[in-house]
Design a protein around this nucleic acid. Structure first.
Lengths: 249, 249
DNA sequence: AAAAAAACAGCATAATATTGCAATATTATA
DNA sequence: TATAATATTGCAATATTATGCTGTTTTTTT
């Protein structure tokens, strides 16, 4: 059995039972308790579960597998997500695009939040479905293989029928001059439709994306209502955006 | 055997089994383990799979609950899948519902098959996306949490616009008197729409489902064109279906 | 505080990876 | 077609990784 399989099994067991004992795992997997201990330690470092004395407890369901190198950006995105979820009104209608930051938002929803989410992103939909009180509506269409996102005319038509309270729109790049920009034309068209159908536009953006731009424009900077980054809201790096009357949290 | 073919084989094996051991591959391919190692390394660099110590694991869709050990009667379902895929015409339009048997079909598509698949099932869509030459269209709508399936009026409207060559329709239960039956009303409505939009109806069914029935009817038995089971097509258990003029493979 | 359980560190062993190299096969070019 | 350039493959030597074991330290329980 491959190490990765074993770790996947451990993750699955912790998810199902909420907690597991290292001794039990060692027996089920036919390996020494030291090996299990080492596995659990690694998984803990990858934030996939929480190691406790004698066992491990679940860290919730996570569809995405982070490599060691993006552990830092993962933590930053989780921080952005925690700040972002406060913008969702109870019983609200939410439109949410794809990307790993939005995936974190889908993970960090308050357990008691009741809301309806529309999304064209397969991974985000999967993640949203783990929440009991969240209704998930998938926006269908042609699926792009790399971004796992639905695009195309039927997608846009579907989006046009929605009236959302808030839209979480992630992007490849953002800067003052060009606004939010992306490298894929189909995705940009779909995103434009999303923005049109939403009252409030929230851009959860990791600071490394600030000040860069791509080929196609989704929207200008002043169409954004709220900018959420991992930085302090009064950071000098955000000065330019503050001047545009964008709420920064 | 050409290097290309070998790598294609390796990719297919990892897709089907979710993991492979380098030693096994070397044996199956009649090359040294070094060659396999180099192939896997290349495929890893191309992000087509993930190389790990001792083997490789599938790169796309890896949710534990859908791996071999976790699917009930996996062997039989994989066998049904292998028989079913022969019914897909090249460049055809396919409608495929959810369920683990259909998931196996999505896994076992021939590597060179070109086709367009429509599905309302999240896991099936994920699996289909791992195929290079397959176009995947997701049929959106309200997602049911347990079956991970889109249902509802917008789903049905979307389906009504499709004209499919073949439809793979799995079901909870099937018998001669009641046809295909399910326990969820929304799912049955969605399935009815799928059948209406398809020229040829294929029912991949594991034999233990034969002769049982549920609350709601999807279709009568003579609407089914082809029945695929893990049994020998001439098995006496299939006698009743054969009398209905259903093709059995 | 003592006893028990668990975690940790270091080490030995076996399995797997990497590297350089030579033999062979394939491709490009004159 | 001949020849040079390039790629592929298997092998051997060496390096790395995974695992279990032992003894010791830390944590939990009594």
């Amino acid at each position: 059995m491959l190490k990765e399989e074993r770790q996947q099994f451990i993750l699955n067991e912790t998810r199902i039972h909420n907690k597991v004992l290292l001794g039990d795992l060692a027996e089920q997997l036919n390996v020494s308790i030291d090996t299990v201990r080492r596995d659990v330690k690694e998984l803990d470092q990858l934030k996939k579960l929480k190691k406790v004395h004698g066992g491990a407890i679940s860290n919730g369901f996570n569809i995405y597998t982070y490599t060691e190198t993006d552990i830092f950006s993962h933590e930053e995105k989780a921080f952005i997500a925690k700040k972002s979820v406060s913008l969702i009104p109870n019983n609200g209608i939410v439109l949410i695009s794809g990307g790993t930051t939005n995936l974190e938002i889908a993970r960090h929803l308050p357990v008691n939040l009741k809301a309806t989410f529309f999304t064209p992103s397969l991974p985000v939909a999967m993640q949203l479905m783990t929440h009991e009180h969240i209704e998930v509506l998938f926006i269908g269409g042609r699926l792009l293989k790399d971004s796992q996102l639905a695009v195309g005319p039927s997608t846009i038509r579907f989006i046009q029928e929605i009236r959302a309270d808030v839209c979480f729109m992630t992007t490849n790049s953002i800067d003052e001059a060009n606004g939010m920009t992306d490298s894929d034309w189909d995705i940009v068209q779909m995103k434009k439709a999303m923005l049109k159908s939403s009252k409030k536009i929230v851009a959860p953006v990791i600071s490394e994306k600030l000040g860069s731009s791509q080929r196609y424009q989704t929207c200008t900077i002043n169409e954004v209502d709220v900018l959420v980054t991992e930085l302090d809201p009064f950071s000098s790096k955000l000065e330019g955006y503050r001047r545009q009357n964008i709420e920064i949290i």
